[in-house]
Amino acid sequence: MAGDHNALGSYLRSRRTRLDPAVLGFAGGRRRTPGLRREEVAQRANISATWYTWLEQGRGGAPSAAVLDRIAKGLMLTEPERAHLFMLGLGRPPEVRYTPADGITPRLQRVLDAMPFSPAIIKTATWDVLGWNKAAAALLTDYGQLPREQRNILRLMFGTARKRVRREDWSSVARFVVGAFRADVARAGAADTDEVTRLVDELCLLSAEFAALWQNNDVVAHGEGVKCITHPEAGRLDLEFSSFAVEGRPDLGMIVYNPATPQVAQRVRELIEAKAD
């Protein structure tokens, strides 16, 4: 098949043929094929009609990211479709476009609630906690009792004495958290946003320790590890954690904590069941 040799051209043709010319302001009448004409796509993308034709024909070399972005807008592509366009045209996904999250879907909340004895949270790239389950409220922090602006892991860690008391290895954990935060905001394309700048400035004023750690420019991965907490009722609890990406949402991540031993699991279960009564 000809499309096998020009996947980009085949994809572009398939996307433009699904669009309704009349809805987009182009004259109707008889058309030999459905959808937009090549010159109409070029007009919507603000590029040369000749250049767009060459792209569909597999001529003219690789397009730039800017051109692909304009074509994606002109063809009204969804984010997954835009990412696929970049993979075909440049062999890489597009740069992440950061959009601050306001909340999570009911479906994501049900995922959290399906783990009754494993604390789990959904956090943003700036480490605001948007979702949590009952186990997280019982063992980690009852985010529902906090004002929305205080549901931030970094604000809680560097501005709350209670957090330091519960963590024996607070200094090493703080170093890890700041390095992981730096990696998260960069991955989400948020490193230079006003939101992150304001948060970092606030934390630097709030905590000399945060300011020093931020100045170090350390970056760490935080896919998995062990979190040791001292709970006021259950005592020391060792929890293994794993981090997961939320598909299609580079600004969100899920962290799930599981008891590291059967003994800890039993204490966790008893604590959660007692709070549920």
Score class of each variant (00 low, 15 high):
A234N: 14
R175I: 01
V264F: 01
N133K: 00
A2C: 06
E233D: 10
D251L: 06
A208I: 03
A22M: 14
A45T: 04
F244L: 13
L146N: 09
R269G: 05
G3S: 08
T17I: 03
R110E: 15
R44E: 04
F176E: 11
A276R: 15
A101T: 13
N46P: 00
A208R: 13
D69F: 05
E79H: 09
G144H: 07
A265Y: 00
E209W: 10
R30V: 12
V268I: 09
L146R: 08
V67L: 08
R107F: 14
V165G: 05
V185G: 02
K163F: 11
F117C: 01
H222E: 04
R148W: 09
L68I: 04
R182V: 03
M157K: 04
A136I: 03
V178C: 06
V67W: 05
L237D: 01
A188F: 10
M87C: 04
D20C: 10
T141K: 02
D251I: 08
E195M: 13
G131W: 12
A65G: 14
P93M: 15
R15W: 02
D184W: 05
V185H: 01
I121S: 02
A260S: 14
W51V: 02
C204G: 11
E79M: 07
L112T: 07
R155A: 02
D277V: 13
D201W: 03
N216A: 15
K163G: 12
S242Q: 15
I104R: 07
N216V: 11
F244G: 01
R32I: 15
F117P: 00
R38I: 07
V41S: 05
R187A: 12
A125C: 15
T78V: 06
C228L: 10
E240R: 15
E40Y: 09
K275V: 04
E240M: 15
P100Q: 04
Y52W: 09
Q145C: 06
I121L: 14
A22F: 10
I71N: 01
R148V: 14
G103R: 13
E240G: 09
G9M: 12
D113R: 06
D113Q: 05
V173H: 15
G131A: 09
P80Y: 07
M76R: 13
R107C: 05
L213Q: 11
R59S: 02
R59I: 02
G235P: 04
E202F: 11
R155D: 00
P63Q: 03
Q109D: 08
W170F: 12
V23Q: 12
P21I: 05
D113K: 05
A265S: 12
A136Y: 00
L24D: 11
V185S: 01
Q57I: 10
G35L: 04
Y257F: 14
R175T: 12
A276D: 09
K123N: 04
I272D: 02
V264P: 00
D201V: 08
R38K: 08
T105E: 12
S171R: 15
S243K: 14
A234Y: 08
T78G: 06
K73Q: 14
A66P: 03
V111P: 00
E40Q: 12
A135N: 05
F176S: 05
F241I: 01
T99I: 13
A72M: 00
A7E: 07
R110Y: 11
A62V: 14
G189S: 11
P21D: 10
L252W: 06
Q266D: 13
M254I: 13
G225C: 04
I71D: 01
L252Y: 10
T141I: 14
N6F: 07
